[in-house]
């Protein structure tokens, strides 16, 4: 409107994305049960699958941090979004003068921040307990940040299916998430997988996130860290694009 001072278009979009992220964090993420669950769940997963296997601690911790980020960044957004659809609050975002990508990025941002924070807490707790050190700080930061975004994006992409029941979206999400943890070198080293498993692992963003985490904590990685980073960014962009296509499809 005339009386408003107009900001630059990009700044407007960024501010709107941040407003959405802040609101989601306030409503969905800063809840005691959510936080407790986010911290305990990866441990439970991890002990269920890793204990008893003869794996050195140093190889276990990167995997633990990876799946922590994986689950915490991708869980809350896709369960909250269907609820917002149900009360038609999501319609408000769709009708606002902001890009549809901005709405998704705002939703992704809150999940990514959550994944980053929970992942860092788990890591900070593991380092002294297992007497580990951070060997590559750039690898760690790159891994944590890009993985958080990428996994959060995966969840929001699936939440673009116009379902008003969180269970529907979570079912679909777990259908993708659970197989990924077995083919991404978390519990089973990629070299140990059958041939098809090794091929499939190349298409899992978790493979590259975990590889960066291994670089950060073990000092060894299977891929060039820049390649892993570039692939995580590409996966995120692809998820964003596919999410938008899904959304458009159902508005026709």
């Amino acid at each position: 409107m005339a009386q408003c001072t107009r900001k630059s278009a990009l700044l407007e979009e960024l501010e709107a994305a941040w407003a959405i992220a802040k609101k989601d964090i306030k409503i969905y993420y800063l809840k005691a049960p959510t936080l407790m669950f986010a911290i305990l769940f990866p441990f439970a997963m991890f002990f269920a699958f890793a204990v008893g296997r003869e794996m050195p601690v140093a190889t276990l911790v990167p995997g633990l941090v990876s799946i922590t980020v994986f689950f915490s960044a991708s869980s809350i957004g896709p369960s909250a979004l269907p609820l917002e659809r149900r009360i038609k609050a999501y319609d408000r975002l769709v009708c606002a003068p902001i890009s549809p990508y901005t709405v998704m990025v705002g939703k992704v941002l809150s999940g990514a921040i959550f994944g980053l924070v929970i992942g860092s807490i788990i890591l900070a707790a593991c380092l002294p307990v297992f007497g580990l050190q951070i060997i590559s700080l750039p690898g760690l930061l790159l891994g944590l940040i890009l993985a958080s975004f990428c996994f959060s994006m995966l969840g929001i992409m699936l939440a673009m299916f116009p379902r008003e029941n969180p269970g529907d979206v979570m079912l679909l999400l777990n259908f993708i998430r659970l197989p990924l943890i077995f083919i991404s070198g978390i519990f089973i080293k990629i070299e140990m997988l059958p041939y098809w498993g090794q091929v499939a692992s190349a298409f899992s963003p978790l493979t590259y996130a975990n590889d960066l985490m291994r670089l950060a904590l073990e000092g060894a990685s299977a891929f060039d860290p820049l390649l892993s980073a570039a692939l995580l960014i590409s996966f995120s962009a692809a998820f964003l694009y596919i999410g938008r296509r899904i959304d458009l499809k159902f508005r026709e």
Binding site: K7, E12, A16, A19, I20, K23, L93, P97, I98
Partner: peptide, 14 residues
């Protein structure tokens, strides 16, 4: 107030 503030934010009201 938070509801109104949020609506203002996504409509780019300073």
């Amino acid at each position: 107030l938070e509801n109104l503030n949020f609506a203002g934010e996504i409509y780019h009201v300073v």
